[in-house]
């Protein structure tokens, strides 16, 4: 070993667009990985000069701090409206938002429905960790029946607390939606599929087809009371059976025709 020098080869590192600011996400949270997905897809598509992100309220609020592209910030529940404004003002940009499950599927459900009805051509990265994160693990519309949370300590009872919302499947029923998929980031294979889904969503947007959404299942160890590794296993064993992964809608054209409503004479 004397005098020997080991050549250093970089085998992993943060993506080029991920700046040096450490993320505030909890150990084992999936949001750091989804940040990587976002950065890598934007880098690989070469769209960083025209990409604009919108951060939501809640855990991902500071997301715009971390990625070296233009980034806005929306009120809790209002990212769909804010992103609509940004995209309508920047029709040639690639515009996307991050939204958590309380943000999109509870307080923001109405705005989300209408963004899809208007076939807004932006992309939503929907973060499903089966509960409210930054406020301390309360029940969300995505919390599965029977799952415990800080506001459903006996388990979520559908009769009093409501059923579980399936965002990607709902989106697929809307005529203005071009692409809807659910992915996870709990294995390298799923990570690759997640990147492919986000790329497809951005491509639909750039082709002007319609609205696009990618739902990410994301582990939330502290609020689930699990270690990071256990939380990844929880995604696989508990969440994926309830929230199946896959592409629920993928179309290259939408019928936007306006039929003649009145008889012309």
């Amino acid at each position: 070993m004397t005098g020997a020098t080991l050549a250093k080869t970089k085998v992993a590192g943060r993506p080029r667009l991920k700046n040096a600011t450490p993320v505030w996400y909890c150990p084992g949270c999936g949001y750091g990985i989804i940040t990587r997905v976002t950065c890598e897809v934007i880098e690989e598509m070469g769209i960083e000069d025209i990409a604009i992100g919108i951060a939501p309220g809640g855990c991902a609020g500071p997301e715009g701090t971390y990625i070296d592209i233009d980034y806005g910030h929306a009120a809790h529940g209002r990212a769909q409206a804010v992103t609509t404004g940004v995209k309508r003002a920047n029709p040639k940009a690639v515009v996307f938002n991050w939204q958590g499950d309380g943000d999109l599927a509870a307080i923001g459900m109405g705005g989300w429905m209408h963004a899809m009805l208007r076939a807004e051509t932006f992309t939503t990265i929907f973060l499903n960790n089966a509960g409210y994160g930054s406020t301390g693990g309360q029940m969300a519309p995505t919390t599965p029946a029977g799952m415990r949370s800080s506001t459903s300590i006996y388990g979520k009872d559908p009769r009093t607390a409501g059923f579980t919302v399936h965002v990607a499947e709902m989106a697929a029923t809307m005529p203005g939606v071009a692409y809807s998929a659910r992915v996870a980031i709990n294995t390298p294979a799923n990570f690759r599929r997640a990147k492919e889904a986000l790329r497809r969503a951005f491509e639909k947007q750039m082709a002007g087809v319609g609205y696009s959404i990618v739902e990410f299942l994301s582990p939330c160890p502290p609020n689930w009371g699990l270690t990071p590794i256990e939380a990844m296993r929880f995604v696989e064993e508990k969440l994926i059976p309830i929230f199946p992964l896959g592409v629920f809608k993928d179309v290259d054209s939408i019928d936007y025709s306006m039929p003649a409503f009145y008889e012309n004479k």
Binding site: A74, R78, A81, V82, T83, G85, R88, A89
Partner: peptide
């Protein structure tokens, strides 16, 4: 909020 988005643009 759509106004907000357009305004920050």
């Amino acid at each position: 909020y759509i106004l907000h988005g357009a305004a920050v643009s």
